[in-house]
Nucleic acid binder design. Structure first.
Lengths: 99, 99
DNA sequence: ACGGTTGTTCGATTTTGATCGAACTAATGC
DNA sequence: GCATTAGTTCGATCAAAATCGAACAACCGT
């Protein structure tokens, strides 16, 4: 598996974050990660989309600085970039967590 | 000019808000309204888009519960639905205001 | 009544994005 | 080495969204 690229949080525009979270599938992923409170692999979400689409959504979330993914064996384990997001986008996680 | 329809704030999904703010033009409109602190007419923004497109963006923002518009003469004056947004989407305005 | 201002609506075009299947890569376990 | 697992990449398709010009509607001031 390839190495993942993660943007510096200060290079991320609010616009990109908004775009990433405007999709129901991606919002569900982020919320699941928030609730889990631990790293999750792509296939631990029950999303009604194919592997290819799922991979695409994770890429969008990574590019928007929302998640970071590390490789362990054949799996990619993702988590929210919590501390950085709290500093760079105060209010964001609060917003996502409501309801 | 026609009457504008404004959704009840509780009928608005976070997803819709995210989608509305994912567009650079619309984010600029909302930020300009925040900074102005008063009602603004469509043509008071210098957006690099046509009248038709501008009208469309205001409609999206209205449908997402972000702004409300009243008609005064030939103008449509818009402002942020501040109080309601603070209650329904805590963190949102804070997020928009940063930088 | 007429012309100017302000914005809407329509229809068409173009761009962007979501989605998938299939082929591929890389690590794991037997 | 070989099958399995996990995810990527490619190419194509389909749907949603941004954009525009032109025609229209409502109001204003004179």
């Amino acid at each position: 598996m390839k190495e993942y690229r993660h943007p510096a949080i200060d290079d991320v525009a609010l616009e990109s974050v908004m775009h990433a979270l405007a999709d129901p599938c991606r919002l569900a992923i982020v919320r699941a990660l928030r609730q889990a409170g631990r790293e999750l692999a792509c296939n631990e979400f029950d999303l009604a989309v194919s592997k290819a689409t799922c991979s695409h959504h994770f890429e969008v979330l990574r590019d928007a600085g929302l998640i970071e993914t590390r490789i362990e064996g054949t799996k990619g384990l993702s988590k929210i970039r919590e501390k950085e997001l709290k500093r760079r986008f105060p209010g964001l996680l609060q917003l996502i967590d409501r309801e």
